[in-house]
Amino acid sequence: MDIIVLIKQVPETSNVKMDPNTGTMVRDGVESIINPLDLYAIEVGLQLKEEHGGKVTAVTMGPPSASKALKEAIAMGCDEGVLITDRKFAGSDTWSTAYILSAAIKKIGNYDIVLAGERATDGDTGQVGPNIAACLDLPLGTYISRIDKTDCDKIIVERLLEEGYEKLEMPLPALLTVVKEISFPRLPTLRGKQRAKKTELIVFSAENLELDENLTGLRGSPTRVVKIESPKVMRNGIMLSAKDEDQLEDAVNKLVEFLKTKEII
């Protein structure tokens, strides 16, 4: 069973700082990591391979430095890494990104399942997975929380909904986006890291892919960012301390009053 796992390199969000003057992200000194939600997809891919054989290929699009994310994926156990990189791809929105990734998946060719994280923690759209399924006309399962059963031509999965779960059966090849519940990602091993060092990444650029260049990069993107702002976070709310019984009584009474004025109760 051959698996393609789509991953994205994102800034380590807990360290993100915003420049208050420009409203843009300060990238200096911010570490880049594999999108945390993609780790679950990698783990599922590795487990499927362990059970059914085959290989796992990690695929990412980004600047050349995104090769680090692919090396990490290989260190976890992926067999190959494909880096899609070209200056012409810069500024691609979700539509164009999905279009380019779809072309790369077509070029890779043999695959039974394409896996992706539910969304990336930077862009936070969750669109590229469903976009690609639509582009390649693959059966789609989003928010997948469990793989119940799979054989070479079909798969039964559980999908996490707002009010519970549903079970879907679909033929392979298919595209699945997975949620955290599905697995516990393993850590890279020392041997994996050594293997990652030796593994040569496959690099695709615009020339290697069958693409209409009018549909890639900023030019090919239907959406435009007009404005970026840093929202105010501080609310300067009422602060009370409840260190002794009197303070406690007073604070809780005031909270009840507060909830009343806000028409919560």
Binding site: V16, M25, D122, D124, V225, V226, K227, I228, E229, P231
Partner: peptide, 8 residues
Amino acid sequence: IGGNILAT
């Protein structure tokens, strides 16, 4: 970006 920016 984790609510750090608002993009229009």
